[in-house]
Design a protein around this nucleic acid. Structure first.
Lengths: 207, 207, 207, 207
DNA sequence: GATGAATGAGACTTCATTCAT
DNA sequence: AATGAATGAAGTCTCATTCAT
C-alpha cells in the first residue's frame, strides 16, 4: 500500500529543493544576518512557496543550525583532506592558511555566515560552531603542532591554547574579506606571521 | 532672560538621559544583535518613553552608528593613553594586549557590540568601525612597530599588514570572551605568540 | 475476477483506518476544539499520511459532522437500550442519569466533543446535534415522562419543555467533567434533584 | 517633564478605544469561538489598526481572559444586586432565573462567550470562569439556599452540590439561546422545575 | 487507497517610527 | 524635551487542502 521506496526521480527533486533552500538561506544570512534574514525572501529566492521551507526545516533557528552544521562540516573535512596531503608540518600549516584564503574566495557567503556566527551574539550558534570546529582544532593540535614540536620544527608551547590562537587568527583573517572574498592581507605575510609565532626559522626554509 | 543655573540643570538631565539610552542600547545590542534589538526594550531599560529616544537619535541605525563611534573612540583613546605610558616597544605591545583583555573584562557588552559589528554582516557598521579604529592602526604601526623595527627589537616586516594582523588578532581574541568577559586564552600565552611573530627573542627579556 | 477474500481483507483494513482516523479526530477535537484542531496532528496520531484523511472525509468540517453523527447516534442508542431494560419510570429516569455519568467516565473525549459542540458557537454543529439527539428527546418524553405522568408517578407538566430541561441538565452535568471524566457532582444528589423536580415523592421509593 | 496627570479628554478617548476593542472581541468570539476568532477582524471591527490592540492586551489569550473577567464580574454583580432586592427566598430564586433570561436576551453575545467558555475545551478559561463565578455560587448557597432551608421553605439538601446544580442548570438554559437571545424554554416552566427540585410546595405560593 | 511535498492564505505578534498632547 | 497610543508593514509559522506519484 505504502510505496516501499521512493521513486528515484522524486527523491532527486526533493533533494534539489532542499539544496536550493539551503543555498538561498546562506545568501540571505550572509547579506542580512540571522535576525535580519527573512524566510519570505529565502523561499522566494529558492523559487518555492513560503510554507515549503517548513517541510524541510522546522524553524528559522533550526534552519540556521542545520546550515551551520552542514557547511561547517564540509569546510572542516575539506581542510583536513587538503592538509593531510602534505607531510611536512611547516607546509601543513602554510597550507592550512592557504586553504582558508581559498575557501573564503570560493565561498564568500558561506564564509561570512560561518564567521559572523562564530563572532556574533547568538550563544546557541556559537556553541554549535565550536562543536563543529572541534575536529579542526584537534587536527591543528594533534596533526600539526604536537608532531611538529616533537620534530623540533616548532618551538614547544601549550598546544591547546596555541591551537585556539591559530583558529582565532584563521577566523579573524577570514572575517576581513569583503563580499567578493577579497582580503586586504597578503597570504604569505600571514603565513610568515604565524610561522614565526611558532618559532619556525623562516630563513632556513625555502618558501 | 532664562536663568543660567536652570539651563545648566536642564542640560545635565538631558545628558543623563542620553547616557542612559546609550547604555541601554549597548546592553540590548549586545544581547540581541542589531537586527534583533528592540527600541521598545531599549527605552524601557532606560526608563523613558518610546518616543523620547527619537529626540536624541533620528533612527535605530543612527543610534548604532553614534554608539559605535562613541564607544569605539573611547576604547581607542584609552588604549593610546595606556600605551604611551610605556617607552619600551616590546612592553608597549604587551600592554596593548593586556589592555585589550582588561577592556573586555571591564566592558563585556561594549566589547561584544564592537567585535560583533566589526565582523558582522552590516557594511555600514564595518566601514564606520574601520574609520574609528584607524587611529589605533596608526598607533600600532607608527608608535610601536616602526620604531621597534628601527631599534631592532622587531624583525623588519611590512608594518601596515602586520598592524592589520595584530588588530585582527586583537579582535579575534576579544571575540572569544563570554558574556562575563572571560576568555579561554591566557594573556601571557597570547603575548608570547604575538611577540614571537614579531621576531622578539623572548628569552632575552624579563617578562 | 478479484478473489472475494482479498476484497474482504481490503475492506477490513480500510475500515480500520477509518476508525483510527475517527478516534484520533475525537482526541484532537477534545483537546483543541474544532477550530484549534489540526488535520496534520490527527493524521499523525492515526499513523497515516496527511492526504489519506481526504480519502475518507472531504473536509475538516465534514469530518466533524460525520464524527458528531456517529458518536451521537451511538450514545443515543446505548442510552435507549439501557433504559428500556427498566420498566419502572422513576428508575428509568435514574438510569438515564446513571448512564450519562457512566458514559462520560468511559468516553471523556467523546463526551467533551459532544458537549462542547452542543454548547459551542458553531451553528451547523448545534443543528446537527439537535437532530441527532431528537430520538433521545422523544425517548425521554414518550417513554419516560408521558407514561410516568399517566401512571401518576410524575406530576403533570408540559412534557416537551420538561424533556428539554432534563436534556439541558444532563448536558450541563456532563460538561462539568474534567479530562478524566470525573465530575464534582454526586450522582444520587443529581438524581434526587431531578426526581423532586418531577414531583416524585422520594420518601416513598426505595433507593 | 512628565505630564503629571493625563488630559481628561485623552483618557476618555483611550478608554473608548479599549471599550470598542472589548466589544468587538465579544462579538468575534461569540461568532467564531476563541480559536476561530481573528485579531485582524476584531481590530477592523473596532476601527483601529492591527497593532493597536497590543497596546491594550498583550495577547489574544490575555484579551480573552480580561474579557471573561470583566463581563463575568459585571454579570455576577448585576445578578447579586437584583437578587438582594428581594427578601423572600423563593422569589429570590425565581428572580435569579428571570435575571438569567434577561441577561441572555439583553447581551446574547456576552452570554454566548461566557457559556461557550464555561463548557468549552480550554482549561485556562474554565478555571478563570470558575473563579469569577465563585461569588455567585456563594450567593446561591448562602443567601438563598441555606437561609431558605432554615426557614423551611426549601427541603434540606447539601447546599453546595445543590448550588452547583442550580448553576449548571442556569448555564445550560442560557446555552440553549440562539444568536438573538431567544430560548425554546418558558421561564415559568424553568422556575417551577427548579423550585420543585428544591421541595417548594408550588401550590402554596402565588406565582 | 496511500503518500507527503507543495501551496499560499491567513494566523498572531513585533517592530520602528510618528505625532498630538 | 517627554509621552505613549496609533500605525500598518513585515515578521515567522500553521493551516486545510491538492495532486502527481
Amino acid at each position: 500500500m505504502t510505496p516501499r521506496y521512493k521513486n528515484e526521480n522524486r527523491m532527486k527533486l526533493i533533494n534539489e529543493t532542499r539544496q536550493r533552500l539551503l543555498k538561498a538561506a546562506v545568501d540571505e544570512f550572509a547579506s542580512a544576518g540571522f535576525e535580519g534574514a527573512s524566510i519570505n525572501r529565502i523561499t522566494q529566492a529558492a523559487g518555492v512557496a513560503v510554507g515549503t521551507i517548513y517541510n524541510y526545516f522546522p524553524s528559522k533557528n533550526e534552519l540556521m543550525l542545520t546550515l551551520l552544521g552542514e557547511i561547517g562540516a564540509e569546510h572542516c573535512s575539506y581542510i583536513a583532506e587538503q592538509i593531510r596531503q602534505e607531510n611536512n608540518y611547516v607546509l601543513r600549516l602554510k597550507r592550512l592558511l592557504a586553504v582558508a584564503f581559498d575557501y573564503v574566495r570560493a565561498n564568500p557567503n558561506q564564509a561570512r555566515v560561518l564567521f559572523a556566527s562564530m563572532q556574533g551574539v547568538n550563544r546557541q550558534f556559537k556553541t554549535q560552531l565550536s562543536q563543529i570546529y572541534e575536529p579542526m582544532m584537534q587536527l591543528i593540535c594533534e596533526e600539526i603542532l604536537l608532531p611538529g614540536m616533537q620534530q623540533g620544527v616548532f618551538q614547544p608551547t601549550d598546544p591547546v591554547s596555541t591551537s585556539i590562537m591559530i583558529m582565532t587568527f584563521y577566523l579573524g583573517v577570514g572575517s576581513t574579506a569583503d563580499e567578493n572574498g577579497v582580503t586586504p592581507l597578503d597570504m604569505d605575510a600571514v603565513a610568515d606571521f604565524v610561522l614565526r609565532a611558532l618559532g619556525v626559522n623562516l630563513t632556513s626554509i625555502q618558501k
